[in-house]
Simulated assay, not measured.
Amino acid sequence: MSQATTIQSSEFLTAVKHRRSYYGIGNKKVVSEERIQEIVGEAVLHTPSSFNSQSARVLVLFGQHHDKLWSITTETLRKIVPADQFDATQQRMNGFAAGYGTILFFEDESVVEGLQQKFPTYKDNFPLWSLQSNGMLQYVVWTALELEGLGCSLQHYNPLIDDEVRSAWNVPKEWKLIAQMPFGNPTQQPGDKSFEPLEKRMKVHQ
Rank of each mutant, 00 (worst) to 15 (best):
N27Q: 11
R35W: 01
G41T: 12
K29P: 00
S32P: 00
T187R: 09
Y122D: 06
Q8R: 10
E11K: 09
I7Y: 05
H18I: 00
H46C: 06
P182K: 09
I39P: 04
S9N: 11
P197Q: 12
F12P: 00
V40T: 04
D87R: 07
K176E: 07
L13I: 06
I36L: 11
Q155H: 07
G191I: 09
S194D: 13
D163C: 09
Q132P: 00
D124H: 11
T102S: 11
S71R: 12
E199A: 13
K193C: 14
F62I: 07
A83R: 14
L115P: 13
Q8N: 13
H46A: 06
N185L: 05
E107C: 05
D192F: 14
M93N: 02
S10K: 09
S110C: 06
E38F: 09
R57T: 03
P82H: 05
T187K: 13
W70S: 03
I7F: 10
E164M: 09
Y139F: 12
K173Y: 08
I161N: 08
K118D: 08
R20N: 07
T76K: 12
W142Y: 03
P190S: 05
K193F: 03
L128T: 15
S130I: 04
T73W: 01
T6M: 09
T187I: 13
E109Y: 05
V81S: 08
L61R: 04
C152D: 12
K200I: 00
P82A: 11
V111G: 00
K123Q: 15
F12M: 12
E146G: 12
S10E: 13
I161H: 00
L45E: 12
M202N: 13
K17C: 15
E11I: 04
P172V: 07
Y157N: 05
T47A: 00
N158Q: 01
N27T: 07
P172A: 06
K17L: 14
Q54P: 00
S133Y: 05
D163S: 15
V16K: 12
H66F: 06
M181V: 01
I39G: 02
N52T: 05
V44P: 00
L128R: 14
F106W: 13
F51V: 14
Q138V: 04
S53N: 07
N170F: 01
E107R: 03
E109Q: 14
T14D: 15
Y100S: 13
A15F: 03
A83P: 08
S110N: 14
L147Y: 01
E146V: 04
T73C: 07
V58H: 05
K200A: 01
L145H: 11
Q189E: 15
Q8G: 10
W175H: 03
S53M: 10
L104N: 03
R57W: 02
S194F: 10
L150Y: 07
E107Y: 01
A97I: 08
N134I: 08
Q8K: 15
T102D: 04
T121V: 11
Y100W: 06
Q3P: 00
L61S: 02
T143R: 12
W169G: 01
E38I: 04
P159M: 05
T74L: 10
E34G: 06
G24A: 11
Q91H: 11
D108H: 10
K17H: 14
M93R: 09
E148K: 09
G114V: 03
N94M: 07
